[in-house]
Structures are given as C-alpha cells and as structure tokens.
C-alpha cells in the first residue's frame, strides 16, 4: 500500500463510517424485521452464513442485545464441532436458543426416515421447521440463504411471504422497490427474511476475514477419513453417511464449504488451514458451493420443489 493510501485508510476509520452497501443493507433489513414483526426468530444452522447473520444482528442493535431468539433445527446429523460452536456462541451473546429435533418428528411418525445410498434428513427438516413455527407463532424467520447459491433462490425476495402451510408461491411474490419492505401479513402466515440475499459466497468469506469472526473448525483444512462417490468426497468418520462395502476409506486433507446435514454435505480437498487461505481458495475456485450438495443434484429443479414445500 502507498503511504497516502494508508493515511486515508486510517483517517476514514476514525472519521467516516466504515461500511459497504451489502453490510448496511443487511443491517437495515434486520432492523425492519425487529420493527415490523411481533415474533421474529433467527434460524441458526451453525454454518458460516448464519454466523455472519448473527454478527450483523449484533451490529444492528448494539448496545442492546439481539431482540429475537435463535432457533436451530437439528437434524441429528450435525458435525459435532458445529453444535459445540453453537452453544458457546449463544452463551456469549446472552440470547435465547431454541432447538427442535428432526429425530422427534421421526419418532412421532410425522416423517419417515429415508433409506439407501442417498438417504438424507435434509428434506425432513421442513416438517420440523413448520411445526416449530406454529408452536412458537413465529411471524418472521430470518435465514442466511443467498441468491447466488442456486437458480431458484435467485428469484427469491428479501421478505418472502409463506402461506399457512409454509409454502412458497413463486408466481405470487410481492415486488420489492427501492429499500421498502412490505411485511404486512395475515394471522397464520409468516415471512422468510433473507438479509444477505445479495451477498456472494466470496462476500461472506471476505466479511468473516475482515471482521475476524470465529467459525467452526471443519471449515478449515484437517485430516479426515473419507471415501469417494460420484466424484464427491464423503466423511467416513461418523455413521451418518451410508457407505457401501466396496467404497474404500482413505485419509486425506479436506475441509467443508458448507456445513449442512452431514449426510448431504461433501468435503473438498484442501490445505487451506486459515481464513486467509480459505478466501484465496474460494477466489480461485472452479466449483460452485452447492456443487458439493447432493440434495441439489437430485434434479435440475430440486431446490425450487423443496422451496414450494416450505423448505428454507
């Protein structure tokens, strides 16, 4: 950096508010949620996007605490690191954490566990989520979905209205003009809110780096027992992912780019063991983030279908 450049940087930090369009937009959205809804909740998965949301919420309401609880829909197939991380974060923030388990929905017979090679609890989450929304009468659920993740998500609004059945009607979406967000709903309906809609994966990682936000260790390169299937790398360390007899286990340096349900989250080969190296790797990466999500590969329209049913 040139000296003049360093000087302006220092000066700007002291004098002018140091934010960018995406961060200020997200903070604006979170404040609209707190103001327009009676019972909002932040859906917390333990992944980097929801961790970023938590930081943005801290910024939006400081010096007050975040004025809504966090809720985790636990598939029971989470990476243990994610759960430990979640509990520590919630304690630091002093906010309420609600946990609802997919296992309970299975035990109550509301959903049926999938079986076979590609079985996953990802689809089952929807039922548990919708039940929890009804139980707590949540009228706004804040999520970390981004439009760059997937084609159907690219059509999603920032305030996305769901009917009593939690369903998304892509043809009846409200137009969103300028900064104005219309959160008017009827009893029984709820709004899914996506404050980081306009962020890309790289934006999130760069933000985590700049803000020095702590994230679970599985995002960084580590040695793990894995096996290969359909060109994807699966963890062989827990019994969650179905593995056939002929699928050979080997130890490799890997990290995860998303930390969804273990049964549908593949790893990537990587030696990036610091946030700086991760950001550099993402910048050069030639595979999209959801390329490692088997749930999207089921069909071209997989996400659209799940969204219509009430999935996030």
């Amino acid at each position: 950096m040139e000296i003049a450049e360093i000087e302006t940087t220092i000066k700007n930090n002291l004098v002018k508010v140091d934010t960018n369009a995406l961060e200020s937009e997200a903070i604006y959205i979170l404040r609209e949620v707190a103001a327009q809804f009676e019972r909002p909740v932040l859906l917390f998965s333990g992944g980097k996007d929801s961790i970023t949301l938590v930081r943005l919420a801290q910024k939006a309401f400081w010096p007050a605490k975040i004025p809504f609880p966090l809720m985790h829909i636990d598939t029971g197939h989470n990476f243990p690191e994610t759960i430990a991380f979640r509990d520590k974060l919630v304690k630091e923030l002093g906010v309420e954490l609600i946990v609802r388990n997919v296992q309970d929905s299975i035990d109550e017979g509301k959903v049926i566990e999938e079986t076979g090679k590609y079985s996953s609890r990802n689809m089952l989450q929807t039922t548990t989520l919708l039940d929890a929304i009804e139980e707590f009468k949540f009228d706004a659920c804040i999520g970390g979905a981004r439009r760059d993740e997937e084609k159907a998500r690219a059509k999603e609004r920032i305030f996305s209205v769901r009917d009593d059945f939690g369903q998304w009607d892509e043809k009846k979406q409200r137009p969103e003009l300028f900064d104005m967000l219309n959160g008017e709903i009827e009893i029984g309906q709820n709004v899914r809110v996506f404050p980081i809609s306009n962020w890309t994966e790289l934006d999130v990682w760069s933000y985590i780096e700049k803000e020095e936000i702590e994230i679970p260790s599985i995002y960084f390169a580590h040695k793990r027992n894995i096996f290969l299937r359909d060109g994807l790398i699966w963890s062989a360390e827990d019994d969650v992912v179905f593995r056939a007899e002929d699928e050979v286990v080997e130890e490799r340096w890997v990290r995860f780019r998303t930390v969804g349900d273990m049964s549908c989250t593949a790893a990537v080969l990587s030696h990036a063991d610091s946030i700086k190296k991760v950001v550099a790797e993402i910048r050069d990466s030639k595979i999209s983030e959801r390329g490692a999500r088997i749930d999207d590969k089921r069909s071209e329209a997989a996400m659209e279908k799940r969204k219509q049913q009430g999935y996030f």
Binding site: K16, V17, D18, R31, Q58, W62
Partner: peptide, 17 residues
C-alpha cells in the same frame, strides 16, 4: 454517530448507523 460499537464523525450516504 455509532456504527456498531465505534463512534464516528460522519455518517456516509446509505450507511446504516
């Protein structure tokens, strides 16, 4: 003028403060 836990002299256009 606060942005998060820091004070600033100027709130720039389109910043959430």
């Amino acid at each position: 003028i606060y942005f998060y836990d820091k004070k600033y002299k100027t709130a720039t256009r389109r910043s959430s403060v």
